[in-house]
Structures are given as C-alpha cells and as structure tokens.
Write a protein that binds this DNA or RNA. Structure first.
Lengths: 222, 222, 222, 222
DNA sequence: CATGAATGAGATTTCATTCAT
DNA sequence: TATGAATGAAATCTCATTCAT
C-alpha cells in the first residue's frame, strides 16, 4: 500500500481520536489501531505525537481555508462574497466536526506550538474578511477605519455566536438549521453593515453610555 | 493552618494549573506543589482529580455569575443593563483569565460531568440575557412577532459571541475589557434593535440570498 | 470513657475489619471510624497496625480456648469431653465468625509473627485433644502410640471437614446444622475411636494398599 | 523471546509471590522483578493485578485437577481409586506448595471473583469423590439408606479434610504426602465403611449425646 | 484525654517511544 | 516496508504514621 494512502489513514484516525478524546487522552495505541497499522509505522511516518498532532492541525486548517476560498467567487459583490464565505465555513465545519474540534477546541488549549499553527490559519481568514469589508467600504465610499484587531474580534464574535446557535439548535426540538442561520443573520448583519459604513453603536440614536460610573465605565468615545 | 484557607490555596493552584496545561496535562503533583502542600492533603480535602476539577468549575462559575449580577442594576433600562452586564462580564474574565479558561476552554472539552457543570452556569446567564431582550422588546412596544424561541436564539448568539470574545481578549495583548464590550455592542446592538422593531435581515435593502446554490440554501422567505 | 472500654471498641472494630477485608486491605482509617474514635487514639492505645492485629489474634485465640475449656467438664468420660469440646468449638466459631476468620484465614496468611501467635493457641488445643485421646486410650487399656504430630493432623482434618460442612450446609437448602453435625460425627467418630484403640486403617479388614505402584505408593506399613 | 514463554515466567513468579505474601501484599513490582521482565510487560500480557491473580488460580486449579485425574485409574475398585486420588492430591500439593497456597489460602480470602474460581475446581473434585463413595456403597450392596444428600455431605467433609491436611502437611516440616494420605485414610475410612454398611455413629456402642445441654443439642435420634 | 492537620513512601496503571528482525 | 517485543518515566491515588494543640 502506497505511503500517501497509509499516511492519510493515519491522519484520519488521529484527527478523529484527538477530537474525541483530546490531545493528552488520545493514545498512540488507539490511533494506530484505528488506522489499522502497527504503532512503529506511525512513528516511522509521523515521528512523534507532537508532529502527528501538528500534521493534523495543518491538514485540517488547509482544508478549511480551501473550502472557504472555493465557496467564494472573487468577482461578485462583497456582501454576496461574505454570505458565500460564511456559508462555506459553516458547511465545512458541520461536515468535518472532528477537524473543526481539533482546530478550535484542542489545538488552542495545548500550548504554544499548536496554538501558533492555528493562529496562522486564523490570520489568513481574517485577512480575507478584512479585505471583503474594505472592498465593501470602498464601494460605499466610506472609510471604515477598521483595524485588523477589530476585524479579528468580529470574526470571533461571529464564530462564537454561530457555535452557540448550532448547539442550541441541536438541543432544542423544532429549531432547524435554517432557523439558526436566519437568526444569526438577523442578529449579526445590521451590525456588520454599520461597521462597514464606519458607524458604531456608541454613536447610534439616543443612547449614551454612562461616562462616570465606577463599576461600568463607558465605551471608548466615538 | 485552618482547612478553609488551605482549600482556597489548593483551588487557586488548581485553577491556574488546569487553565495553563489543560485537565489531563495538569498533574496533581504540580498542583500540590504550587499550593505549597503535599499531594495526600489535596486528596484528603478534594478527594480526586475529577472532584477537584469540578470544584474549580463551580467556584469560578459562581464567581463569574456573581460578578455579572453585581454589575447590573435591575431598575435601569434594559440597554443600560446589557451594557453594564457585558462590561462586568469582560472585566471579570479579564481579571480572572485562568478561571475563564477553565470554564470556557477546559471544562467543555472533557466530557459530560464537567460540561454539564458549565452548562448550568451558562443557562443562568442566558436566562438573564433573554429576560433583558424580552424586556427591551416589550419596552419598545413595537414587535408582536418576536417569539419566545427567537428571543432564546438571540440570547444564545449573544452569550456565545461574548464567550468567544472573552477568550480572544484574554489571548490578544492590548485588548481591554472595554474594547471587547464595545466590539460586541457594535456587532450585536444594531441587529437586536432591528429585531425589536420587527425588522429582519432577510427583508433588508436589496439583498437576496442566492436561490440556486446547492451548498448554500437561502434563509427562510420573509 | 475508661480506657478498657475504648480498647474493646477498637479491638471489636479491628477484628471485624480484618476479617472482612484482610490484613492489608483493612485500613486504620476504617478501623478508627468504625470504632468511633480518632486515628491517633488508636495509635496511642495500640501503637501500630501490627500490634493491633496481634492484639486481635490474642484476644480471639484466648476467647476460643476459654470457650472450649468452659464447655468441657474434666471429670466426665473422655468421649463425652470430646463431644462437648467439639460442640463448644463449633458453637463459638459460629457465634464469632469474624474472630474465627481472623484466626483461621487472616493470621495464617500474613507471615511469621502472626502465624506464630496462632500456633500457640493451636498447640494448646492440640495438647488438650491429645490428653483426651490419651486418657481414653488408657481407660481402654490400649497404647495408642499417637504422636503429637498425628494428633495435630487429626485436628486439622476435623476442622477442615467441619468448615467444609458448615459452608455446604449454609449453601444447600434443606440441610440443617444438626444434619451437618450428625454427618460429621458419622464421618469422623469411627476413625477416631479406632485410633484411640491403636488401630489404623491400613490394618483393617481385607484392604491392602498397593505396595509397588510408582504413581501411588502405599501408606506406611502398620 | 516468544510470548508464551514469557507468560509462563510471569505466572510462575506471580504464583510464588501471591503465595508468599498474599494478594494485597504482593506488589506488581516484585512479581515483574522475579519474572525478570519490566512491569509494563506484565500489564501488556496479563492486563491487571486481578486478571493476573485469576490466571494464576485457573492455571493452578487446572494442574491440580489434572494431577488427581491422572493418579486415578477408573476401572479399579472405589477404595483403591480413593487412595490413589488422595495420594495424587497430596503429592501434587506437596510439590506445588505455592500453587496450593494460592488456591486454598489466598484465593478464598479475597472476595467473590476469586473465590468463585476456586469453587468451580472444588465442585469438580467433590463430584469425583461423591461418585466414588456412591460407587462403593453400591458395590457393598448393603445400604439402601444412604441418600444422595448424605453422600454429598460426606464428599464435602472428605474434601475439606483433605484441603486442610494439605496445607498442614506443607507447613509442617517432616510430614510427607504419604503421611497425610495415611492420616486421612485412618481418620475417614472407618466412618465411610460404617456408613456403607448402614451403621451410624449415633447408634454406636453405648454413647448417648447429652440430652439436656442448652449449648450442645444432641444429634438426630437414630 | 483526644484530635485536626499533615506527609513520606509506595501501590496500580498508562503511555510515548525504541529496537531487532 | 512493517511489526512483535519491550521499557523508562510518570500518572493517580492510598496508607500507616506523627505532631502541635
């Protein structure tokens, strides 16, 4: 059996095991058994548990980024691209729950070497979103003044909301995936649109955050 | 030294160790050493690694919920309560990054007994947020169409976004609790405001989700 | 509370715990808890686990020997004394199963210091039995030629048969304690009687053990 | 080195260690060291201390039953078979004192899973003895009154006595297998012979159990 | 007289990793 | 290419025992 095939089997088994049990609780024995090969062969190809984990992260990160890229058509309007990109993202993570778990839950909770690997992927996606928002802003002839960091924060918020909704939809009878998606768009879209136009909540109609409260200092002045 | 004091030292050490290394990688030896006691004493007071972890989760969850409650004044308008609550939340998670990491990253990736513990806390916070959104909608007197279930979904989305942002703010140098709170308000408030007015994204200006894409079915027709 | 009472509580708890769990599996914690006192008090009175175990053995051995002695009236004929002694023995062990377990099962499987303690008691009972048989033999004007070792072997056999029958009677519906006792006497009495008369099986009617078989060498010639 | 050989080494070491120190006091470290292998290898092959102990019991029980079976020639008269069986039994236990100690002393004092294992072997031997006694009774053609249950009781008594004597012979220097066998035959044969003739102790010459003693109720009236 | 507080030592068990073939 | 055989190191947890009060 050719090496490439064997390696893919091993990575499949590893991703699944790491996702289900976590990095530490996943044993090389189990992975080798699940892959249908002997343990020394895993070491021959992947060298160590750390390298195996890193290989998993890299493969899953690459697949996710590729899926998002493939879902987006560059020529289309920015809002359409965003919708397509988000949909591709959620579709891919839904179809590869183990891979997503490795990236999102496992890699980030096990120290620098692995977190850095995910950070690279994250930067790629953030840049993509940033680009889109910038395009949209330019098309609307606004200067959104969105720092990379702010974009990253929005990405975090969006992903967090989406994950939370996915779990909620799964646990609440009668709530469909489409309900969840619609809720998310209703929830998030107006805010994103505002930000693309350079508008922020603290400047919005009527509300003024309390300036002097010790317990709850107001947001940065607009 | 009295038992209560020792126990607090142990829990402090455990929270820190669990947050930094994860549940599995955190060894009882290290925790005991960090607490300045011998390992048997940890077992005498906390009985097992599982129970120690559970005790950490419970303590941190209780502290977080208490902090949010303390930050909110019940009589104030709902939007003000939301801002205060978010600020208190991000402030607490920023001041207790290890505690938050235990709740958000560690407890949820290590099986049912622990995840359930966090789910209980989460339900409490979600209920609080739902209450706020419901109040605000009622105060706006303009939306007869916001079903309980939709409110619940929005609460989930908001809490999920907040959780995700809290972790991100802790991991990203230079991001303050106020930054996080402002980001979340910018992100979420316009959508909530729209919904309270009965407006929804899918009906908003001009945009129509692509109808024919296999991978990306459109939102429910308005 | 006077020391003697406390000590008895401790020994009671210890005998029970040692009998139920074995010497090693019985923990001083459990014993102290069962006795209703704190662990340091157990150490203050009984000094160590070994000494505690030894004290248990001594107390139970003493009680057993006393029970047998009390059951026998010296003036009576030897056969009556034997019957009384056996009955007292079985009555006592049935009423003190934990004590008997400590003597018979636990003490003999945990190394020299404890086994020696039991051996002393054993010697006392063996001497008593030996004496009885000797008396009976003398009364019958025979020379039984029973070595101490042979008497000890008979004791072993009798006790082993009795234990086995006791368990069997407990596990077989419809078999009463009296049935078991009768079976034992029917089984053992003729042999003992023979031995008191100096007769042995190998000399008995007709049967001759095979002399030359390699696999099954015959018994010592009479 | 092939697995089967290693396993035998480990079982040898384990039987010896369990016999000498008891189940709890025998440490896996010592067993591994005595077997000349590392501890993980013991776990790789035998899985746990419990399973290792069970494996010891099963192996020793099988060997003992095989030895007794091999010592008996089915065609011979029942009394000869009994003598042969006993001799084989005492010879085997004398040659394998550690194995016998594991079966007789250790396995029966450490809870159900192990005791049951021994009970199975014991049942096999008891059945064999019962068969013999039944045959002998039938051959003697003289006792219509020996019920199955009485035969079973006699088997239990005989086996119990033999077990007890085997341990005693092993622990007492100078007592050979033949001594033990002869002692047991001297002890048990006259009674068995009597019973086969329909005679019972309680009917025997002159002796009447004391009628009125509270502690020592007499045997069933003849 | 009695105990709450504390620990050194050692138990079973698992795991990542290597070597000889 | 592939594996059966083997292990050093470290994990969780328990226990007999002591001291200050």
């Amino acid at each position: 059996m050719p090496r490439a095939v064997r390696e893919r089997q091993m990575l499949d088994a590893a991703v699944r095991t790491f996702a289900r049990h976590g990095y530490r609780a996943a044993s090389m024995d189990r992975i080798a058994e699940l892959a249908g090969v002997s343990k020394p062969l895993v070491y021959l190809y992947l060298h160590s548990k750390d390298e195996l984990f890193t290989a998993c992260i890299r493969r899953e990160a690459g697949a996710l980024v590729a899926a998002v890229r493939a879902g987006v058509e560059p020529g289309l309007p920015a809002d359409r691209q965003l919708w397509d990109g988000l949909t591709a993202f959620f579709t891919h993570t839904a179809e590869n729950p183990d891979g997503w778990s490795v990236l999102h839950s496992q890699a980030r909770t096990h120290g620098e070497p692995f977190a850095a690997e995910v950070a690279a992927m994250r930067a790629e996606i953030t840049a993509f979103v940033n680009h889109l928002i910038g395009d949209a802003a330019r098309a609307a002839r606004c200067d959104p003044h969105l720092a990379d960091r702010e974009v990253a924060g929005l990405g975090e918020a969006l992903v967090g909301a989406a994950e939370s909704l996915a779990a909620w939809a799964n646990d609440t009878p009668g709530v469909t995936a489409r309900d969840a998606a619609a809720t998310l768009m209703n929830f998030a879209w107006p805010g994103l649109e505002n930000l693309m136009k350079g508008e922020r909540w603290s400047a919005s109609a009527g509300f003024r955050p309390p300036a002097g409260s010790a317990r709850t200092p107001g947001p940065p002045a607009p």
